[in-house]
Nucleic acid binder design. Sequence first.
DNA 1: CCCCGATGAATGTGTATTCATTCACAGTGA
DNA 2: TCACTGTGAATGAATACACATTCATCGGGG
Lengths: 223, 223
Amino acid sequence: MVPGTVASEGKDVAAVVSAARTSARHHQIVNAAAALMQTRGSTSVSMQSIAAEAGVSVGLLYKYFSNKEEILLAAISQVLNDFTVRVPQAIGGIEDPVERTIAAFRAFCEAVDDQRRAVVLTYRESRALSQAGLDEIKRREIETLQPLRQAVDDAVRAELLVPADAELFAYDLLILAHSWALKHWYFQSRDLGLDDYIALQTRTIIGAALSAEARRTHAHLFA
Amino acid sequence: MVPGTVASEGKDVAAVVSAARTSARHHQIVNAAAALMQTRGSTSVSMQSIAAEAGVSVGLLYKYFSNKEEILLAAISQVLNDFTVRVPQAIGGIEDPVERTIAAFRAFCEAVDDQRRAVVLTYRESRALSQAGLDEIKRREIETLQPLRQAVDDAVRAELLVPADAELFAYDLLILAHSWALKHWYFQSRDLGLDDYIALQTRTIIGAALSAEARRTHAHLFA
DNA sequence: CCCCGATGAATGTGTATTCATTCACAGTGA
DNA sequence: TCACTGTGAATGAATACACATTCATCGGGG
């Protein structure tokens, strides 16, 4: 039976409304938490401040999440989600695996830049998370790595990249993308903007791993 | 007048004793804090736990440090100090700049490994530090980088390494050494031990930055 | 008029910091 | 040698505060 037909319409409608409200509240609260993580880089994110940011009462938070960890986890998850969405989108349709690797790295860095403080908090607030929560985040992080890893693997198979270890190479690129947030103070002091950073790291790490042949055929990518 | 002569011997002795006690207490407390940072990786380090670990009362901590930040700062400083001591020691006497770069990177990684949890806390507890404290740590971090940076510069001058940017290249190596602590869960899941990690990163990052000539002359370093 | 989403003051806990008190001992006078 | 005393190191219970979590209460729509 399709929901919304005569039989018990009242109940169905109520259920739909309730589900819609629940979903809306979830978004509202998680967005507030994410916004706080992004804004209040230094201070810690309290339930009181999340409630204030979301424009609701403290008590309401507990109607939709069972504790602070759930909210934090959802907010971090949302940050990671941005990666899983943007990276594949950025490399879709790019044939050449070296170009794809470069584009994936760029997309990673740009996504990190958009949520710079939140990424730092991902490292900092991890102490407030349970083991299960941490495991979940680790799983998601590896998940975000896959498109990049795939591109690197393809490039290795095509003998365009010859890193000592493809897996580690991809992970290094992930680390260096995160580092744009973690070590932003350093790059800023060096007067490196995001584009400078991406260009330099691309040449330093990816360019250096090119095979002898790719060094000729793909030189134009590292102007 | 030389201290310890007749005139006011009592006062001088008292001053010396007092200075010695102060120094000893400082070490005792900071060592306790550092030990806790290393042991209790997950839990936060409280004044109560520092006092317990040091075998003194909570109140005493405030006789020798004006607040928690000072203790934390001293403990982190001690960790960083390990770097400034061990890295130069490890590369002393090595002539070839590529070998020196490799040895410096290895020393960094080994120092990080020895204080793995404490290094992670350096990132985590930074939220508890004032701007001035953070600045101090940043300054010290750049200081630890210098020997490595020097080796890289020498290698570049000798046309053995040709990174896109020498400064960034050295900093990347620092980041990857730190990452051994930050991302230990990942490398562990990949069954990479410290020596594997050092060897692979050396080949992946340093080996890839070799000049065409060095690729021949220094091949033996990347077996 | 009742249901239930929403409220926010109250509660409990962890922890940084303080302060009244204790304690060990060196100096002093007999 | 011994009793007395002033000094400052050390103590740890008490305080203050931030913050996660709870719950008695409210109020508007069905």
